[in-house]
Structures are given as structure tokens and as C-alpha cells.
Design a protein around this nucleic acid. Structure first.
Lengths: 285, 285
DNA sequence: CGACTTATTGTAATTTAATTACAAATATGC
DNA sequence: GCATATTTGTAATTAAATTACAATAAGTCG
């Protein structure tokens, strides 16, 4: 596991001084791997043995071993950790933290997605007579986005963010229709109802939601995204980005399945937008 | 550059003993990073200073520094790159590629955002009498998302994805109002008009769009996101994710600026949603 | 509230590892 | 084949990390 993540995750078990060490390391990971234990101790304003104890607590053999692990974590260019935004953060700090948390979330999601489930979902979608995307609240915009994407495929696709419309649509669904329900928590009652109704009417229900949630239990097929935890700001952030990426993946799988001829069509759709846009001014060679 | 490659490439410049060291390292790189200089010297059947000289020849400061570089090379050195999806990619391949491209895009965006612009945007937003989010097509869902976020702040906020409504709204704007126009290319004619109209009516116009685009020129303040290029599938993918993250950042900046009292309110909004959800079953201690 | 216990942190000593300086050995050119 | 240059190793030195222990701070219970 990424050492940086490990530090963040086990910050609770740290003592006061150890936390100081953690902060300094998280702030300058790149510097850390080129510092001696003495230099780091000074930076964190603690004693050298404290740094050593800190390393041991993270299951490394000692400081040099810790640096090795740290170097490995930094190697893939990603010090992406889910760092929480703090009250006293300036624009620089919170901007960096949000970017990094989002990337960390994507990284985690990437390792946790069930490729088989994705493949089956693509199967189902390519064979759908009609596709509906339903989401409420923050997930509504994900549903909209999905509609926008699949609309380009010249497939019958609808999207509702209104429970009444969703309900009507679900009741009218039939065999061969696919309903995609999007909800991070999977605990939104209304959406669970919609999923149940759609299934009773023989539609295939794909859930983009948490594994083993009430919504998941109502679905034919679940695409779960394990995203660490959202940053403290009481609003969905990283989770929603992961959902979007999942939609991108489904859309991509869809176009690939449809073959190259189909993709030419896509290009036409894109080109058709040209009329509504200002031309890019030609740069003289 | 990858140290292992470097060893292979410069094997010509090595002396006999140095070559012995190189061989041992190439044969057991994983072991090497956990060995002392003495252990390695013994394995290669050379003296310790020879190992040290070997390290120096590879432009490292010494043996520990060399181990650090080696560790970095060994850590699955796949930095996130913008890999294009290919025709023959299976689910595994395109899933990985899309995740990685998105992360690469975010990484790039992170290094290119203008923190000052963000800070000023937050300034403007916190002082707004009314906030409007406008986007068309793929950017419409980003606008929706923004609305959802800022709505929680108990701020007058609207969002339209319909040019007629956008136009009416823009005409009715007044000093103190903030209009956020979202467009990846910044070349959507209709949206440029809206921006112009809003500005003529004394609203502050923030553009989430490409630098130096027609839309950018109509804005009071531009938040440009430099995202490499979208994957080949003829639809906006990474760019839109970057926009969403930018919205997250603005929303976060907003709440931080408003102070801790305000954030308690936010928690209340979140808690208010509880009634519409299934409770998480309590896990017995 | 104070004595006792436990946990945390730092100081100093010790050990270990890495580097340097120098000498021996090997190779290279004339 | 001798002189020079290069390579390699031995021993000494230095630097770094770790351990042992003492002091301080934080809890806990009477």
C-alpha cells in the first residue's frame, strides 16, 4: 500500500510529535527521501528517535527502509492522498488537496472496479431497446452527463431527475429496456422504489452505487465504486467524479462494441456541432 | 530516467568489477534495495568501495541515494499518461486507459490552474447577490452539478441549460450578480452571446473555459483549465471531469471563506437528507 | 487534589553503515 | 620490460541510525 496513504490513514494512532513528523513528510515528500533522519527531525522539531519510532509504527524496519518505501510511493508520480481540507487552508492548499483527493479516489476506484461487471453492463447497454438514466440530487448531473453521451450514439435515451417522471418512465418500461440508477450511497428511498418498479416491468436495472446497499439489492447488475471517503465538506465530490469516469468507460465500451463504422457516425455528430461554434482561427505556418 | 535502463546503457563504460556489480543488481534488483553495501559487495564478490564507485558512476550521490533511485524505478513506473483507447482494446484495457487519462488530465490541470484567479473567483462568488450557472451540451451537467453544490449554501442560485432561459436570465441580471459560463472550447456562439449580455447588464461573468477563447474574451474573470487532449472517442471526457473538480474547488473556497459557523449549516443540509434515505444498519460493537 | 502509573519524548551512548584516503595490484602504452 | 595509468582492495574515518535509559508529560484512581 502507498505509504503516504498509510500515513494519512493511521494518523489517528499517532502521538503529538509523530503527527508533526507526518505533517512535514506529507508536505515535502520529495525532500524527505533526500534528507537524513537528523534533518527531518529538525524540520519537524522533534528528536531523531521520534522520527525512527514514527517509521517503525508504519511497519518499516527503520528510517532508511521508510525512505525506500516512500520513494516507491512517489515513483509513479502520484503523491495522491486523500487529504482533508482544513479550516485554515489557503487557496493554494485547498486547491491542491482537492485535486489530489480526487485523483486518489480515482486511483482507488480503478483498482476496485469489477471489469466483468463493466463488460456485462456494456453487453446489456448495446442490446438495449431504450436506455434511461435516473439520479437524484448530486447524482442527477451524472445522469444528465450520461444522457448527453449516449444521445450521441443515436440510441433512444432518456434522463429524468424528477421522481414523478422517473416513476412514470419506470412503469412504462418493458423487456429489453435498460434503466441505470445512479446513487453514491444507494440509500435514497425513492430511487430504490424506481429500481424495483423497473425490474417488475422486466427492464434490466443497472445500479451505479455502493456495493451491498438497498439500491444494489434491487438491481440486476451492480457497478460499485469503492471511493475512500469524501472530503469533509459535507458534499459529494470525489465519489461523483468516479461515477462520471465510470460513465465514460461504459460509453467507450459501447462504441468499441459497435465497431468502427459506428465511430464514423460519432465523428459526424461532433462535426455537426461546428455550425454553432466559432471557428478556430488558422495559425499561419 | 529509469536506473535499470541506465545501467544497461552504460555497461560499456564499466570496469570488470563494476560489471559484476551491475549483473548482480540487474539479477536481483528487489533484493538490492534491501541490502547494505557490504552485503551487495559480497554478492558481487567485490569490495565495498567498488560498489560505491559504481553508484557514483551512475550520477548518484552514493549507495543510499542509488538505492532510492532503484526503488523508484522498481515501483511499477507507470506514471499516468494520456493513453488513447484503441480499436482492439478489451474491457480491461480501455477501463485502465480511461482512468489513467483522466488522472493525467487532472494532474496537468492541477499544475496549470491559476490560484490567483481561483481566489478572485471565490471572492466574487462570496459577495454575489445571485449566482447563475450556464452551460450547454456536455457542460450543462457541470452547471447542474454546480447548482446542486451552491444550492446547499443557501445562496440564490440558478442554472439553465436552455439558451432562451439563459438569455432571459442574462438580460435580467444586475450589478452584484455573478454569471458562471462553462464551456470547454469556449467557442459556443450562444454562450458567448450570453456572457456579453450579462456583462452589459453589469453582472460579473466568470468563464470556466479555454484561455484566450472567444468566450474568455467576454468574461470578467477566466478560469482556464489546460487539459491535454481528450481521448479519441469524439466526446468530452477528461475536460469535463476537470471542470467538475474546479467547481468543487470553488465550492470549497466558498465555504472556507464563509467561516465555521456556516459550515455547521452545511452539515444540517446534509442531515436533512436523512429522512429520504434508508438508515445504515448499525454495526454492533 | 495528589500520589501512582503509564505513555511519550528527548539525551547520550552505541552500533552499524557508508565513505575516504591510500596502497597494492593489474593493465596499458611506448 | 619498464613506466604510467587505471583499477581494485584494505584500513581508517566519518556520518548516520539505532538503542538504552532517563526525564517529562499525561492519565488514573483513591
Amino acid at each position: 500500500m502507498n505509504v503516504l496513504e498509510k500515513i494519512v490513514n493511521s494518523v489517528a494512532n499517532f502521538s503529538k510529535s509523530e503527527r508533526k513528523v507526518a505533517e512535514v513528510i506529507l508536505a515535502n515528500p520529495q525532500t524527505t527521501i533526500h534528507s537524513s533522519i537528523a534533518a527531518l527531525a529538525k524540520m519537524a522539531d522533534v528528536s531523531e528517535p521520534t522520527v525512527n519510532r514514527f517509521c517503525r509504527r508504519l511497519d518499516t524496519k527503520g528510517f532508511p527502509d521508510f525512505k525506500l518505501h516512500l520513494a516507491q510511493s512517489l515513483a509513479n508520480g502520484t503523491p495522491y492522498v486523500n487529504r482533508h481540507v482544513e479550516e485554515e487552508d489557503g487557496p493554494e492548499a485547498y486547491t491542491a488537496k482537492i485535486f489530489e483527493s480526487t485523483m486518489a479516489a480515482l486511483d482507488s476506484a480503478r483498482h476496485n472496479v469489477d471489469i466483468n461487471a463493466i463488460n456485462r453492463a456494456v453487453d446489456v447497454l448495446t442490446q438495449a431497446k431504450k436506455i434511461s438514466f435516473f439520479g437524484l440530487g448530486a447524482s442527477a448531473s451524472v445522469a444528465h452527463d450520461a444522457q448527453n453521451k449516449f444521445f450521441r450514439f443515436n440510441v433512444p435515451v432518456v434522463c429524468f431527475d424528477d421522481i414523478v417522471m422517473q416513476r412514470m418512465s419506470a412503469i412504462n418500461s418493458a423487456e429489453g429496456d435498460v434503466v441505470v440508477c445512479i446513487s453514491h450511497t444507494g440509500r435514497t428511498k425513492n430511487l430504490c422504489d424506481i429500481a424495483a418498479i423497473a425490474r417488475e416491468n422486466d427492464a434490466t436495472v443497472i445500479g451505479v452505487t455502493a456495493y451491498d446497499s438497498p439500491l444494489a439489492r434491487e438491481c440486476t447488475l451492480v457497478l460499485s465504486l469503492d471511493v475512500p471517503e469524501d472530503t469533509d465538506m459535507y458534499m459529494p465530490m470525489a465519489s461523483r467524479v468516479a461515477q462520471l469516469v465510470l460513465i465514460d468507460i461504459l460509453a467507450t465500451g459501447f462504441t468499441l462494441r459497435r465497431g468502427s463504422k459506428f465511430r464514423e457516425n460519432l465523428k459526424k455528430v461532433k462535426d455537426s456541432l461546428r455550425g454553432s461554434r466559432f471557428e478556430k482561427k488558422d495559425i499561419p505556418a
